[in-house]
Design a protein around this nucleic acid. Structure first.
Lengths: 221, 221
DNA sequence: ATGAAGCGCGAATCATGGTTCATTCCTTGG
DNA sequence: CCAAGGAATGAACCATGATTCGCGCTTCAT
């Protein structure tokens, strides 16, 4: 026998699999989803097209791995930011500003993953990712309502709208071109303020200052 | 000679051209952009595939006609609603609620036209449509700021976010399934309130009542 | 060292869907 | 009514991009 599941072999397998996803991620971040083609991904990863199929049964599986990876990462960072906040409202603000800031930084990638045209099968996966992100917001909003920090409202609806506002305003094609760091910080600050006010925060401006202070730490990749 | 540019011929040409766009629109509204294929459009319009090319030089031109038609219509209705409003803030509220209500009703079509996956060339056209809609909101917001009805803010940014919130919250795949008329009215009402508050309207609830009253008339197709 | 079992290759194949064009069908002006 | 020429047809064609597969090359267990 030969080529058993020795750990050296497994390690190499995982490493190359990772490299393929990474190549796909780079392409998505640089040129959008349409550039994520097997041939290009393979070239970027220095392998042949056919080899990709030794690691993923289909292109959709590859894209799924990419999308889920990004979504899971962003969700984790958002959760962490919310977790270290002192109260429900601060947690909500932290989740919003964290998502906003990171999305602004990685806008091409986030757009590609969450909103850009793809195959029908991927569409469904993407919807579930958006749903997950929206659910995170919803949980924070619901908690704030429960704590009487926000007025009664349909949190399912407002959380989805919140996600839409952030995506469209910060990462979509209509979003202001990403300029210097300060400009980006301003837009994140402004939209966060806008969102919090919309949810019913009365002293949103004061919260905004907290947000401002939180920026440099939270925005790190 | 035969077949001169007689008006009868021209009329028939226009009618069929219109029928083709209408067929495309139906398909988009029923099954999304991916169902808008030359073969299907032709079948729906009771003509052969090749015939489509006598009316449109390419599929993109056809889709462009479809998209631009929808966008122009929605924009016109929005403008009209705003025009008959008594003041800048009411005009803004009217524009928002009109767009929201109509989008909710035609959510599949609006989604297909403004957000669903398509060919790269169409992508650019779509961006310009979204830009036009956002610009309409922006003008209303700017007017309200000028009239001291809204606090100072980056209207370009908030208008885009507003569009995103409405699209995601009311027509996107995460939007609540369109139920009975009252449910839809509630969601439109809630998001409008949310949006106005976000923009800095303090008595948003009162404005919401105006919105409520305006519904039946404005929502007509 | 050796050979069995995977691996990597990349040109060929397949699927999809837009576009073309030789042929046939109609409408119109006389 | 007739012929001239535009309109309609739809099967064939083409472009794109995912997927397959037979052939050598590596690596591991002995």
């Amino acid at each position: 026998m030969a080529y058993r599941r020795t750990e050296r072999v497994v390690a190499r397998f995982n490493a190359r699999r990772e490299a393929i996803v990474e190549a796909a991620k780079e392409l998505a971040a640089e040129a959008g989803m349409e550039a994520v083609q097997i041939a290009q991904v393979a070239a970027r990863a220095n392998i042949a097209a056919g080899t990709v199929y030794r690691y993923f049964p289909s292109k959709n599986e590859l894209v799924a791995a990419l999308v889920e990876g990004i979504a899971a990462r962003e969700l984790a960072v958002m959760r962490h930011a919310a977790m270290v906040a002192p109260g429900p409202l601060s947690a909500l603000a932290a989740a919003i500003v964290t998502f906003a800031a990171r999305s602004r930084r990685q806008h091409k990638l986030i757009w590609a993953v969450l909103a850009e045209p793809v195959d029908h099968d991927i569409g469904a996966l993407r919807i579930s990712c958006r749903k997950t992100l929206a659910a995170e917001f919803e949980a924070r909003i619901a908690a704030a309502i429960a704590g009487a920090n926000l007025p009664e409202q349909d949190s399912a609806l407002t959380s989805v709208a919140l996600l839409g506002a952030l995506l469209e305003g910060l990462v979509g094609p209509l979003a202001p071109e990403p300029g210097d760091d300060w400009k980006m910080r301003d837009s994140v600050q402004a939209l966060t303020l806008n969102a919090l006010r919309g949810l019913g925060v009365v002293d949103a401006r004061a919260r905004g200052l907290v947000v401002q202070a939180a920026w440099p730490k939270e925005a790190a990749a």
